Simulated assay, not measured.
Amino acid sequence: MHIRPRSDDDLRQLVEVLRRTHDQDGYPAHWPNDPASWLTPPGHLTAWTAWSSGTAVGHVGLAAPDRDAASLVTRLVVHPDHRGRGIADALLATAEAAAGTACAVPALRLDVTEETPGAWRLYERRGWRLTHRAPADWAKPDGTVPTMRWYEKRLW
């Protein structure tokens, strides 16, 4: 497995990774009209693609929608067939290292649903601090409102 900066050419394969993640895990909760654009949220700074045997298997991005606040880790996804191999950990480490030199505020933030313990356990193992929990400001397709966990990690 290797990680490199995401290129536009990666997006077709990354949409397939996202589709498999959505179908298996319900992330994202609502399938986007334009999944390639969804991988590039407002305030997008940069993103990386994880590759294994010539196939895209994961993605993570950084965004700074507010220049005066900590940047966000966004769109962290790993193909379900490639989990348990350290890909999410490596992608997160890549984003953290890049943010340490590229972001104006010395911290990163992210949010995750309470119902995804594998994800939030990864963040906690990597030194992220839970800042608060609260109901989401959105609902899943079945109408339920998930509980969100917000995390922060100081970079220096």
Results as ranks from 00 to 15, higher is better:
Y123D: 00
Y123S: 00
P35K: 03
I3L: 00
W156R: 15
P146W: 09
T94M: 04
V78M: 00
I87A: 07
R6C: 11
H2G: 00
T101E: 15
I87W: 06
R154M: 03
L45S: 07
K140M: 11
A36T: 11
V57H: 03
R121N: 13
S7E: 15
D9W: 02
A95Y: 12
G118K: 12
L110F: 08
R126C: 05
H2T: 07
T144L: 00
A56T: 08
D142V: 07
A136K: 09
D9R: 13
L11S: 06
E114T: 09
G26H: 05
A136N: 02
T55D: 03
L130H: 03
D34G: 01
L11Q: 09
S52C: 10
L108H: 05
V112E: 05
W128V: 10
A88E: 09
S37I: 04
R149T: 07
W128G: 02
A63S: 15
L76P: 02
P41E: 12
T40S: 05
R85S: 12
H132T: 04
E16Y: 01
G58C: 03
I87G: 03
A64L: 13
L122M: 09
I3Y: 01
R20P: 00
L39F: 12
M148A: 11
L110D: 07
G43F: 04
A134G: 04
L92Q: 07
R121S: 11
R67E: 15
V145N: 01
W38V: 08
R125D: 10
D81K: 05
W38I: 02
L62N: 04
E114S: 10
A134L: 15
V73Q: 05
L155V: 03
H79F: 06
I3A: 01
P65T: 13
A99Q: 06
E124I: 06
D25C: 01
D23M: 06
P42V: 14
A119E: 12
W138H: 01
T147E: 14
D66H: 13
R20M: 04
R85P: 00
V77I: 14
R4V: 14
R75V: 09
A119K: 02
H59P: 00
R85L: 15
Q24A: 14
W31V: 14
P41C: 13
A107Q: 12
R12G: 05
V60T: 11
D66W: 02
P117L: 03
A56Q: 06
V112C: 14
H79M: 04
D142E: 03
L62Q: 08
A50E: 09
R6M: 15
L14I: 12
R125A: 10
R19V: 08
V17I: 04
D34E: 15
L155F: 09
R126W: 02
H59C: 07
R19G: 01
K140Y: 13
A64F: 00
G58F: 06
A136P: 02
H82R: 13
D137S: 12
P32N: 07
V60Q: 02
A107G: 03
G26L: 05
A70C: 08
I87E: 09
R83P: 01
H132P: 00
A104D: 15
W31M: 08
L110V: 01
A64G: 08
A102M: 11
T131G: 00
